[in-house]
Write a protein that binds this DNA or RNA. Sequence first.
DNA 1: CAACCAAACTTAACCTCGTTAGGTTTAGGA
DNA 2: TCCTAAACCTAACGAGGTTAAGTTTGGTTG
Lengths: 205, 205
Amino acid sequence: MGPRERRVRERDEIREKILDAARDLLVGEGYDAVTMRRIAEKIEYSPTAIYFHFRDKEALLKRLCEHDFLSLPRQFLAIQEIADPIEKLKATGKAYLQFGIDCPHHYRLMFMTPHPPITEHELEKNNPEEDAYAFLKAIVAQAIAAKRFKPEYKDVDLVAQTVWAGVHGAVSLHIAKCNDDWVDWRPLKNRAEVMIDVLVNGLAR
Amino acid sequence: MGPRERRVRERDEIREKILDAARDLLVGEGYDAVTMRRIAEKIEYSPTAIYFHFRDKEALLKRLCEHDFLSLPRQFLAIQEIADPIEKLKATGKAYLQFGIDCPHHYRLMFMTPHPPITEHELEKNNPEEDAYAFLKAIVAQAIAAKRFKPEYKDVDLVAQTVWAGVHGAVSLHIAKCNDDWVDWRPLKNRAEVMIDVLVNGLAR
DNA sequence: CAACCAAACTTAACCTCGTTAGGTTTAGGA
DNA sequence: TCCTAAACCTAACGAGGTTAAGTTTGGTTG
């Protein structure tokens, strides 16, 4: 481990510091507080220094989204203990909901904001412990294998994406339109629970 | 109709022109193209003139969202011909999906972007012909009245919001993450159809 | 060891954007 | 005829993302 490795490590560390600062601003002060200048201020660098580590703001935010999407299942650890796949699915939905309630700005950036395509992935995919989508897929696959769903619902990706979309719809509509008094909104938790129940009932044999 | 009425009419006309210009930019050139300066350029006014008609950009965009949310059901005219409430509900979901496919930028602004609360509504509410949410609610109420749903699903608002959220989840996840090759996305139309079927099945007796 | 060179920064500036201050025109009313 | 308020305009401010150009720093090489 010569000075070469140290350089690489230091580079990764400052990259991580930038991402951490961006996340802190996002969660703590909201969407609009995430500016290159404020990130720089937080880590005591000049704003332009960030451009040495990220091509532009979009790339930075996209990286943050990917990173935190992967780390989501680490918050779902208790769910793995549940044996019944249907209960597991419901618990996952509720945990996902809770993330949306706790970190709405973070949720908005990760799931409600389009990011232009960037062709550089370096992170590990398809590991349920480190990839939220793989986590969900594994549960759906388990439910299908246990013949808990109607026979027409055998496409794991299609079912997983439907369940995801359902809960996401409830959460994201809340985040986008909770200030809209045009609609007589029911409480989010209530809506999300009904959504999960209706979905599971619709999928089940 | 003296000059006083003319003044009011002219004011409304230029307001409408501003909204039309904003909508054109949004649909034609996308989200980022909607700037006060470009709107002004399009209607051949100075940027500051807009501030005489709208308090700020947020108010302008919010007004646009409300206006177009109301005019949505005018695109759903054929649906009123359908007698069966379940089929009606499915058709409404598909029409809503089609709007998301045709106008993704417009959809994003209307349903995926939080707008701060503004306390000034001047538009007519609760008319199914001019209010997309009232339109959906009327269909759900019809289905409930015809005893097509399980007895526990008798809260019209709760059911309407669940159905809305389901289709919205499919559409909005597509708009936000269609460039994300991390997930092996099924086609949107496919996902939306499954979503509608699963929801209806889960709600039905 | 000295020269070099690329990595990792910095300062200063550019451009666009939303918005405001202050001035000007215009038309209806007193 | 004068006044006033509505409906605009020009000019500018400040914040944001980004770039150009220069500077430091530490490892590598002749």
